[in-house]
């Protein structure tokens, strides 16, 4: 892999298998415990656990993709990540109140000290996302690898997810769209938000914003598997203090920030 935009997917297969053996262990334990009631419950429990895991409700999956955004390295005046996102996903780049923005540069200033920071904010890909909880059709969903997406086949355009998201990370498509990119379907009357460039990730490439930031040499954005202790992002998170936006809400964002 010589492509600078690539990331190496770690061997998830081995982990998947180790999970299997864990499953077997649990079954053995249950069998030893015996009892008709327990045996009767076991299949249900296993199915339940599987369903919960498949739905991403239990965060025991070997993969959880996330970002670490280092505000110390993010340059004010640079919006390479925003432009890369707009270009790759076919957004207009307009910033009117009814235009969609999947990622935005936010500047914060402490009025007492004058401390200023600038950094990008996008969908935080929460472990317990409010947008998924409120969606009446399940169009808002969390993929098993932690990416929060809108399944536009099911979206009815009620905008309850826009109401519920504490990060204002969702947009509603208020205009007719006919210049979509083949890899980023989007249409009038549906909700949408950052997909973490899911289609690039599935091809083993970095999200467009992360790749653009790296190309600029700023390296303010790091992408990786939060659940793999060997990944660069997990190591960095273990080494330095970091935070998440509105951690008090308990939604456990997958996007971490340093230096704010």
């Amino acid at each position: 892999m010589t492509d600078p935009d690539s990331f190496v997917p770690q061997d998830t297969k081995a982990q998947a298998e180790s999970e299997d053996s864990c499953d077997v262990g649990r079954r053995r334990l249950l069998a030893m415990a015996g009892g008709v009631a327990v045996l009767a419950l076991a299949p249900g429990v296993t199915v339940w656990a599987r369903t919960m895991r498949a739905k991403g409700l239990v965060d025991a999956h070997p993969v959880r993709y996330g970002l670490l955004i280092d505000a110390n390295h993010c340059q004010s005046g640079c919006d390479a990540c925003v432009r890369a996102c707009n270009q790759y996903n076919g957004l207009s780049g307009q910033t009117g109140p009814d235009n969609a923005q999947w990622i935005r540069k936010v500047t914060i200033q402490d009025p007492k000290t004058g401390f200023t920071r600038t950094f990008p904010v996008m969908c935080q890909h929460c472990a317990k996302p409010a947008c998924v909880a409120v969606c009446p059709t399940g169009a808002s969903f969390r993929r098993a690898d932690g990416i929060v997406l809108v399944d536009k086949h099911r979206c009815i355009g009620c905008r309850y997810c826009l109401m519920a998201c504490p990060y204002q990370a969702r947009s509603f498509v208020a205009h007719k769209v006919d210049d979509q990119k083949p890899w980023a379907p989007r249409g009038k009357g549906t909700a949408e938000g950052c997909t973490l460039c899911v289609e690039r990730i599935d091809r083993g490439k970095l999200p467009a914003c992360v790749a653009a930031c790296a190309r600029r040499g700023h390296k303010a954005m790091l992408f990786g598997n939060l659940h793999d202790p060997q990944s660069a992002i997990a190591k960095r998170l273990a080494q330095y203090a970091s935070t998440t936006i509105r951690a008090d809400l308990g939604m456990e964002p997958g996007v971490h920030y340093r230096g704010i």
């Binding site: 925003v82 910033t95 935005r104 540069k105 936010v106 402490d110 009025p111 204002q168």
Partner: peptide
């Protein structure tokens, strides 16, 4: 999003 800070963005 950031209690205590003055916030600006294009959104």
């Amino acid at each position: 999003l950031f209690p205590g800070f003055v916030v600006h963005s294009s959104f």
